[in-house]
Computed example of a mutant assay.
Amino acid sequence: MGGTSIWHWIVVGLIVVLLFGRGKISDMMGDVAKGIKAFKKGMSEDDNTPATPVQPSEPVRTLDHQAGAPTSTATTDHKVG
């Protein structure tokens, strides 16, 4: 395997600049910086507000308590083996 000398990185950098252009790369870096700032702001807002449990507006219904659900408790034998 080849080593990663400074010349390899220069060639890779030139290819990236040729493909994307200097303007697009700087715009992309600006967008990344805005995303990082927004993430940090969101994390600091989460630390300041205490967590409050969410109360459901109506009781949670399970399969056993559904309206109109059959209430039979039929059991079946399952054989293992």
Results as ranks from 00 to 15, higher is better:
M1N: 01
G2E: 06
G2V: 11
G2A: 08
G3M: 02
T4F: 13
S5D: 15
I6M: 13
W7M: 02
W7I: 05
H8Q: 08
W9I: 05
I10H: 00
I10F: 00
V12I: 10
G13M: 05
G13L: 11
G13V: 04
G13R: 04
L18Y: 13
L19A: 14
G21I: 10
I25S: 09
S26F: 08
S26L: 07
M28K: 06
M28S: 12
M28G: 13
M28Q: 06
M29G: 00
A33H: 09
K34C: 09
I36Q: 10
K37N: 12
K37P: 03
K37H: 11
A38V: 00
A38Q: 08
K41R: 15
M43F: 00
E45K: 12
E45T: 05
D46F: 00
D46Q: 02
D46I: 09
D47C: 02
N48H: 03
N48F: 00
N48P: 00
T49I: 08
P50K: 09
A51S: 12
T52I: 09
T52D: 03
Q55R: 14
Q55V: 15
P56T: 03
P56Q: 06
S57C: 01
E58R: 04
V60W: 12
R61T: 10
T62Q: 10
T62D: 11
L63P: 03
L63A: 14
D64Y: 07
H65G: 01
H65V: 06
A67I: 12
A67G: 00
G68C: 03
P70E: 09
P70T: 12
T71Y: 01
S72K: 10
S72V: 10
S72G: 09
T73V: 09
T73W: 04
A74S: 06
D77K: 11
K79N: 07
V80T: 10
V80E: 12
G81Q: 06
